[in-house]
Design a protein around this nucleic acid. Structure first.
Lengths: 184, 184, 184, 184
DNA sequence: GATGAATGAGTTTTCATTCAT
DNA sequence: TATGAATGAAAACTCATTCAT
């Protein structure tokens, strides 16, 4: 209950001001809780973001593989996963922005980062299979990720700043770009 | 002289700890300068990062269009610019990381962001021409950027964290992915 | 039962960290009790130490006069009492250290201090008698205490810090010093 | 200047409330200084007391050996040193109380304790000589200290609490007790 | 221009105490 | 009796910024 409110407040405030610029007191206030209460659930500020990061990453990853099934063809599977991710990031903008900030700054422990990464396994496996089947380019998973998944964050960022709008059509076009960039 | 040292110190420290986690005193110390001296060159902390951002962005952009010429074909021009950018980011890792952090967090004024953006004009023009010539997909420049330029940041981040190495071959493959993602 | 555990925990923790550096929560934890439970037995933190002080002082004093009897000669009586005290302090190190800390810091109410003091009456009487009989120097009881009883605390402190060991022989020598310092 | 004021304020406040019960803010206020200023001179609260302890101990020790000279007889030397110490403690009550509190609580680092101890060397040497000459009892220096120097602290404590007064006569009597307790 | 000392305002964190159960 | 969750108030400490020199 209170923990949930704290997690939500953290995401929202970190998005708006960055980690180090959001005082615990503000998080507490937004969660309608005393500052001291935070420390019942989290060891300290660092622990708070770490836990939030891991949880958001887990929620994100779980959504990413919804309706995905290893028996799908590589292309179908990739489209499913990619669109899940895109859909998730465009819908749960707050969480997406939070993750984007975590992934591009030193605000998260390396350990928690590793923890958050392991959820991606199925996608890596799919890519591996795709490479074996000659459907996907034989390039490092970092490249595959950089050109298919990572760009989505940019679009969410831009949309959030009101610089552009990402509708259904843009998503489809984006998917085409993503797929074109890695298909063999 | 001292201003330069301050700019460099800022980049380095912000990369390692994030903007709000790097005190002015540390910046001063790293630049071998008194804290008070910072205020001779910059109005305040926010002004300091803003100026550093604009300068780095300018250096980056100027490099991006080295040897580029509007008379080049779209494809040749794009390859030139893309590789300039990639080369720059892989060489000037510190600056690249700094920009990546600026672009994904609320640490920079919106105004300075706009300021930093305008250097990109020639690339946008090239893309426009490419679209008219039917060489590049008719999609928004945000999409074009997301799938060609933005991924480079991811690779630099990963390399910096020691998770992968980006050599000449990877750069070529990355370029192919970038081009494939936007070519008509 | 629980009260006992609380008293013991208090002594132990205050010895290791000092009064103000030992939180109620730690005391509760060490006593396997909820923090709230402490307040069933003690009005507040100050009341807790005060009570503990008085109890320890009482236990100490009661032991001090074991097998002592006003009919003893002054010298025999003093030796008995002194050795009781020394034996007690060397055996119940925790309690001795606790008292030493109480006696040398402002952590105890003046009132409780007085309360703890009155147990010493028989020793004062013995000294009075000794002075009348010309066996003990005609000096203030504070001096008598300072040179006979107080030194024992020092030895216990040193032993506790691992700086020296106080065996049977040392105790005898110490007693000789104590007696020499006050005998007429 | 400011550092001096801080040291003085620390001694005074620790005497009245104990180390952990005196907030940095109070120390700052008493020294007419901002709390932040404390951290210009001391790394943290622990460092503050440690440094104060070492300094007071040094002042004390330096006074202790005033006009003492290794060429003096053991008895004369001891009387000189003992009376120096007594005089100092009775005059510089604040410092004496502070040391007494440091010596009987866990508020000082073991390291600083060692540091403070080494000043006593000349007294230990004198005792060693006294033992060799058969003038002082062949007992451990801890015993010698416990029965000669340590009692002075008790008297100062008592006088400070208003429980007794220690005048010139008492000092002479006390010295006799001290000497009697250790002379062979 | 350059500085080091100083600080007010604010940060994270702790803790004695309470209260609904 | 007994508690665990909750908290207000205060603690230690930090830091952007200033100012006399």
């Amino acid at each position: 209950m209170k923990r949930d409110a704290l997690v939500k407040a953290t995401i929202s405030l970190v998005n708006n001001s960055g980690f180090h610029a959001t005082p615990m007191s503000k998080i507490a206030k937004m969660a309608n809780v005393s500052p001291a209460t935070i420390y019942l659930y989290f060891k300290n500020k660092q622990d708070l973001v770490n836990q939030v990061y891991i949880e958001v990453k887990a929620a994100f990853s779980s959504y990413a593989f919804k309706d995905y099934d290893k028996s799908m063809t590589v292309e179908a599977g990739f489209e499913k996963i990619w669109k899940n991710i895109a859909f998730y990031k465009l819908k749960e903008v707050d969480q997406a922005l939070f993750l984007s900030q975590c992934d591009n700054t030193p605000m998260i422990d390396e350990e928690s980062r590793q923890e958050g990464l392991k959820h991606l396994e199925p996608l890596l496996e799919l890519w591996e299979r795709g490479k074996k089947e000659g459907i996907i380019k034989p390039i490092s998973p970092y490249l595959l990720y950089a050109f298919t998944i990572y760009p989505i964050s940019f679009l969410v960022n831009m949309e959030n700043r009101g610089l552009c709008t990402v509708g259904q059509e843009a998503v489809n076009k984006a998917y085409q770009s993503a797929w074109n960039s890695i298909k063999a």
